[in-house]
Design a protein around this nucleic acid. Structure first.
Lengths: 200, 200
DNA sequence: TTGACATACGGAGACCTCTCCGCTTAATAT
DNA sequence: ATATTAAGCGGAGAGGTCTCCGTATGTCAA
């Protein structure tokens, strides 16, 4: 019996562990707010949370993971927004809907940029936009693929749509986005227009 | 007199400095070869070169710069290849030439991937493909812009071409390229085809 | 309750990046 | 030859990431 239960509920978080997790989140939030994500070290966070570095790293292998945990809720809300938008615009053509999604996406990454990239200096660092292979990337990708497929009337996972979706997402990765904004000097709207004329 | 000469020849490299530079390059090359770029630290390089860390950092602010210096010659040769290709294919349509350039470019980044990204874990790290804003990126960009302009018969620096060139280059950035190859499982040729159908 | 034990803790420490600054030395003018 | 001096050197050290492992403590079965 016990083994089965354990297997199912896959381990309960210990009380002290849960408390420490809270302390970490609070400490990180405070320090990030005050100094900016880049300027805060894992050490500082551990100190502020009054735990040892080992305890911090046991939970978050690097600052990126911690950041991701910190914005988990925003991400959930973001996808709810997307879902709602898609529902309310079902009758619009796919290209229009994709543009609409980008319009929601861009302010989001602008607002959460620091946390999304999460201090990229790290040995066990991550590849690709928004440390790709994370849920955010994959879910956005899936949505984009569906819309591209719909545009070309292809059956669902068309290789071409998969590729285009990858390209679109990398094009609005944090780095690329801020490059266009800060170096090329485009406004968010201009970026959006360019994206559409290139990819849609 | 002396001041004028100094101003003109803008400083001569001191003999000991030149020697150390050589030692660094040799040491780095050896260690990179043996352990892989990522696994070699600046400290190790300094030790192998028998110089202090300060001396190493005085010349190269980070591993990326050192890597770039290490492949400077390959980059020059690469652009000579491009130039020659463009010369020999002047009569071909612009899209064909762009594809040809990608065909030269892809093996190049495949071969030099490690050195081009140059151990990305670094505080003063770099943005964008091939630590963008470096000569390689800018020159490739310029070439792509010209070809895009030619395709659309636009006068030279058309905003649209500039954007498309940025997107194309980011699409074949190391990260993106190896993502397509290793995660999506495409062969270089397939990637090339997809790139063309998306961007050209 | 009380073991038993999986989980979690914490800090010492290995190794890293990068800076600072007093000392050294090559190049030049005299 | 010698003095001057700017360029270069090197290593101590501040502060970071991340690991390892002996110790402590929740949790659960009995």
């Amino acid at each position: 019996m016990p083994e089965e239960i354990k297997a199912i509920q896959s381990r309960v978080e210990r009380r002290d562990a849960a408390e420490n997790r809270q302390r970490i989140l609070v400490a990180a939030h405070k320090l990030f707010e005050q100094y900016g994500v880049d300027q805060v070290s894992m050490n500082q966070i551990a100190a502020e949370a009054q735990i040892g570095p080992g305890t911090l790293y046991r939970r978050y292998a690097n600052k990126g993971e911690l950041c991701l945990d910190l914005i988990k809720d925003s991400v959930v809300r973001f996808f709810e927004d997307i879902e709602q938008y898609l529902l309310q615009n079902q009758q619009e053509p796919a290209d229009h809907r994709l543009k609409g999604i980008l319009k929601i996406f861009m302010p989001f990454i602008e607002k959460k940029a620091q946390l999304l990239t999460g201090g990229k200096g790290s040995a066990s660092a991550q590849r690709l936009p928004y440390q790709s292979q994370n849920p955010l990337y994959n879910k956005m990708h899936q949505i984009a693929v569906e819309l591209f497929d719909e545009m070309t009337a292809a059956d669902h996972p068309s290789p071409n749509s998969i590729f285009k979706a990858d390209m679109l997402l990398i094009a609005i990765s944090i780095d690329s986005y801020f490059y266009q904004r800060d170096v090329r000097g485009y406004s968010p709207d201009e970026i959006l227009e360019h994206l559409c004329s290139t990819f849609i």
